[in-house]
Amino acid sequence: MSEKSNMKFFYAGIAIALLLSVVAPFLASSDPDGLESAAGGVIEESKLSELEEMEPVVGSPLPDYAIEGMGKSGEIIAIVIGTIAVLVISFVVGKVL
Protein backbone atom coordinates (compact mmCIF):
# COMPACT_ATOMS: atom_id res chain seq x y z
CA MET A 1 0.00 0.00 0.00
CA SER A 2 1.30 3.43 -0.81
CA GLU A 3 0.21 6.90 0.11
CA LYS A 4 -0.09 7.71 -3.57
CA SER A 5 -2.52 4.89 -4.33
CA ASN A 6 -4.61 5.86 -1.30
CA MET A 7 -4.78 9.41 -2.60
CA LYS A 8 -5.94 7.98 -5.93
CA PHE A 9 -8.69 6.14 -4.05
CA PHE A 10 -9.48 9.43 -2.28
CA TYR A 11 -9.91 11.40 -5.52
CA ALA A 12 -11.86 8.60 -7.21
CA GLY A 13 -14.13 8.40 -4.16
CA ILE A 14 -14.73 12.17 -4.18
CA ALA A 15 -15.47 12.09 -7.92
CA ILE A 16 -18.03 9.30 -7.48
CA ALA A 17 -19.58 11.00 -4.43
CA LEU A 18 -19.93 14.33 -6.24
CA LEU A 19 -21.34 12.64 -9.34
CA LEU A 20 -23.94 10.88 -7.17
CA SER A 21 -24.75 14.20 -5.45
CA VAL A 22 -25.46 15.88 -8.80
CA VAL A 23 -27.58 13.09 -10.31
CA ALA A 24 -29.48 12.10 -7.15
CA PRO A 25 -32.09 14.91 -7.37
CA PHE A 26 -33.01 13.65 -10.87
CA LEU A 27 -32.66 9.90 -10.43
CA ALA A 28 -33.62 9.23 -6.82
CA SER A 29 -37.10 7.86 -6.21
CA SER A 30 -39.40 10.22 -4.31
CA ASP A 31 -41.47 7.30 -3.01
CA PRO A 32 -41.49 7.00 0.81
CA ASP A 33 -38.68 4.87 2.23
CA GLY A 34 -39.21 1.52 3.95
CA LEU A 35 -39.88 3.01 7.39
CA GLU A 36 -42.25 5.73 6.12
CA SER A 37 -44.03 3.25 3.90
CA ALA A 38 -44.43 0.79 6.78
CA ALA A 39 -45.72 3.65 8.96
CA GLY A 40 -48.31 4.50 6.30
CA GLY A 41 -49.48 0.89 6.29
CA VAL A 42 -49.62 0.07 10.00
CA ILE A 43 -50.41 3.35 11.79
CA GLU A 44 -53.95 4.65 12.03
CA GLU A 45 -54.39 7.58 9.64
CA SER A 46 -55.27 10.27 12.21
CA LYS A 47 -52.35 9.23 14.44
CA LEU A 48 -49.96 9.16 11.47
CA SER A 49 -50.82 12.68 10.32
CA GLU A 50 -50.37 13.84 13.93
CA LEU A 51 -46.89 12.24 14.05
CA GLU A 52 -45.94 13.64 10.66
CA GLU A 53 -47.00 17.15 11.57
CA MET A 54 -44.78 17.26 14.63
CA GLU A 55 -41.79 19.50 14.05
CA PRO A 56 -38.30 18.06 14.51
CA VAL A 57 -36.91 18.81 17.99
CA VAL A 58 -33.94 20.67 16.53
CA GLY A 59 -34.35 22.87 13.43
CA SER A 60 -32.14 22.23 10.39
CA PRO A 61 -30.74 24.69 7.85
CA LEU A 62 -31.51 22.53 4.79
CA PRO A 63 -34.47 20.30 5.63
CA ASP A 64 -35.19 17.50 3.13
CA TYR A 65 -32.02 18.16 1.12
CA ALA A 66 -33.51 21.26 -0.51
CA ILE A 67 -33.12 25.01 -0.58
CA GLU A 68 -36.47 26.77 -0.60
CA GLY A 69 -37.41 28.25 -3.96
CA MET A 70 -34.43 26.80 -5.77
CA GLY A 71 -35.89 23.56 -7.12
CA LYS A 72 -33.54 20.92 -8.48
CA SER A 73 -30.47 23.15 -8.45
CA GLY A 74 -31.10 23.81 -4.75
CA GLU A 75 -31.24 20.05 -4.15
CA ILE A 76 -27.96 19.55 -5.98
CA ILE A 77 -26.32 22.32 -3.93
CA ALA A 78 -27.72 20.87 -0.68
CA ILE A 79 -26.45 17.34 -1.36
CA VAL A 80 -23.05 18.62 -2.57
CA ILE A 81 -22.74 20.67 0.64
CA GLY A 82 -23.54 17.55 2.67
CA THR A 83 -21.06 15.40 0.76
CA ILE A 84 -18.27 17.94 1.25
CA ALA A 85 -19.20 18.43 4.93
CA VAL A 86 -19.02 14.67 5.57
CA LEU A 87 -15.70 14.49 3.69
CA VAL A 88 -14.14 17.29 5.72
CA ILE A 89 -15.53 16.08 9.07
CA SER A 90 -14.27 12.52 8.44
CA PHE A 91 -10.86 13.83 7.51
CA VAL A 92 -10.64 16.01 10.61
CA VAL A 93 -11.92 13.24 12.90
CA GLY A 94 -9.36 10.87 11.38
CA LYS A 95 -6.55 13.35 11.95
CA VAL A 96 -7.57 14.38 15.47
CA LEU A 97 -8.18 10.88 16.82
Binding site: I16, L87, G94, K95
Partner: peptide, 15 residues
Protein backbone atom coordinates in the same frame (compact mmCIF):
# COMPACT_ATOMS: atom_id res chain seq x y z
CA UNK B 1 -2.28 6.73 5.29
CA UNK B 2 -5.82 5.37 5.55
CA UNK B 3 -7.55 8.61 6.54
CA UNK B 4 -8.18 9.59 2.88
CA UNK B 5 -9.77 6.19 2.29
CA UNK B 6 -12.09 6.64 5.28
CA UNK B 7 -13.02 10.19 4.22
CA UNK B 8 -13.73 9.15 0.62
CA UNK B 9 -15.92 6.25 1.79
CA UNK B 10 -17.83 8.53 4.19
CA UNK B 11 -18.53 11.08 1.45
CA UNK B 12 -19.57 8.34 -0.97
CA UNK B 13 -21.92 6.84 1.59
CA UNK B 14 -23.53 10.18 2.36
CA UNK B 15 -24.09 10.76 -1.37
Amino acid sequence: MKIPVLAALSAGIFA
